[in-house]
Computed example of a mutant assay.
Amino acid sequence: MEAAEAARRRMDDPSYRVEMDRRRGRGAVSNPTGRYEPAQRESFDDGWDIEEDLPPLPTEVIIEKPRTIITRNDSPDILFEKSINPYRGCEHGCSYCFARPTHAYQGLSSGLDFETKIFAKPNAAELLEKELRAPNYQPTTIAIGANTDPYQPVERKFRITRSILEVLNRANHPVGIVTKSALVTRDIDILSQMADRHLVKVAISITTLDPKLARRMEPRAATPARRLETVRKLSEAGIPVSVLVAPIIPAINDHEIEAILKESQMAGAQEAGYVLLRLPHDLKDLMRDWLVEHYPDKLKHVFSLLQEARGGKDYDSEWSTRQSGVGPYAWMIGRRFETAAERLGLNKRNLSLRKDLFKAPAKETGQLSLF
C-alpha cells in the first residue's frame, strides 16, 4: 500500500495539485512532469498569486504536419493492421485513458497536458491519398480512433476526421471507427454510403450509464444517454454498430456490464466487446490520484482487484492477457460479459468489411481529360 500512501501525500501537497477552479471540467487532477524529461518541475505558492486572477485551463491546439498518416500495427492481440489518428491528446479528458502516456513523446505530461494541449493534423487527408496511391499498397481495414478520439470537440472546427472519411469513401476503402462522441452522427451521410458497400463499422464506447460517474471519469465526452442515442441513430441509418464496455474498472463500473449491454442492444448494437482497465507507465499514478480525489474509500479495493487480475502488478503488458487480465476476478468478468452478450443475441455474426472494391485515388495532374 506504499503507492496508495504516496498518492495521498501527493494530493495533500499544494505544490502538486492544480487549483480546483482552474481544472474544472477536466479529468486529470494533476500534471506530473513527463517521464522522459531531464528535470522534475515543482510549483509552489510564493504569496503573489491571487485566486480570482487564475484563469481556467484553456485548450491549446497545436498544428502538426507529419510526413505520413497511416500507422502500422504488429501487436498480435489488436484486430487491425493499420490505423489513423487525426489528433494527439484528447479533450474528452477520460481519467483512465491508456493513451495518456503517449504525450511524453511530445515532452508533455500525461495529466492535464494530455487534455489541454491537442495536436491536430490538418494535412491528414492529403497524406492519406498519397499513401493509398502507392503501387504496393494493399487495402486492409483502417482503424480511426484507436489511440485518441477522432470526434473530440476540436473536430467540429478542424473536420480532419470527415476529410479522411471522404478520401476513404471515394477509394472504397474499409474503415472501423471507435468513439464516445455523438459528433459521429454528423457524418452519417458518408458512413451510410460506405455501409451500403460493407465498408464501415462504428464502435461506441459506453463506460457507464450513470451520468454523475461519467462526468467525473470522462468530463467532456458525450453523456451516456447521448451515446445510446448515437447507437440508435447510426443503427437506423443502416450503419453496423458495436459497443465497447471499456474500460471495466474494478469496484467502480464493473457492476454495470449487464445493464450497459442490455441498453446498447435495445438501441441497435449488434456486437460488443470489453477491456479491463489498463494502466501503462505513469497512468497508474494518475488513476491513484483520481481515486484519492473522487473515491478515496475505494482506492485500496480497486487496486487490490486490479492487481489480482494483473499477476500481482498494477499492469502487465503481456499481449495475450493485457486486454482481459488473469485470475478469478478477470475470469468472472469475462464470463459475465459472455453470458450477457449471449442472452442478448450480441456477437452472433462478425461482419467482415470488403476490401475487394478498393480503387486507388487518381493522381491530380492538373490536366483536363479529353473525355
Rank of each mutant, 00 (worst) to 15 (best):
A225I: 12
V29R: 08
L199A: 03
V241T: 10
K117F: 00
S43P: 09
A171L: 01
V18S: 11
T68N: 14
A104N: 00
R186P: 08
L199P: 05
V245E: 01
G89S: 03
L209Y: 05
Y137V: 06
P296F: 14
M266H: 14
M332C: 11
I252Y: 01
R8S: 08
R24D: 07
G268C: 05
S369V: 07
Q307P: 07
S110E: 08
M332I: 13
V326W: 12
S15Y: 03
V245C: 08
D21G: 15
M194D: 12
Q265R: 15
L279M: 09
L132C: 11
G268R: 04
L199G: 02
I84Q: 05
R24M: 13
N31K: 06
L283D: 02
R17D: 04
L199D: 00
R349N: 15
K212H: 12
G107H: 01
E338H: 12
H198G: 13
K284E: 15
P135C: 08
A341R: 10
G34N: 07
A272F: 01
L128Q: 07
K130L: 14
P219L: 03
L168C: 05
T140W: 10
P58R: 04
A125I: 03
A203S: 15
S317K: 15
L199I: 02
V202G: 00
M11F: 06
L299Q: 10
R22H: 04
K117T: 03
C90E: 03
K300R: 12
P135T: 13
R41K: 07
K359H: 11
I257F: 05
V302Q: 06
S264K: 00
T71F: 14
T140G: 08
R133V: 03
A340S: 09
T230D: 02
K65L: 14
E131Y: 05
E115P: 00
R232W: 09
R288A: 10
K363G: 13
E91N: 08
V175A: 05
F80C: 04
I252G: 09
V202Y: 01
G273Q: 10
L127C: 03
D289R: 09
Q270L: 11
I164R: 07
K298E: 13
H281L: 07
W290T: 08
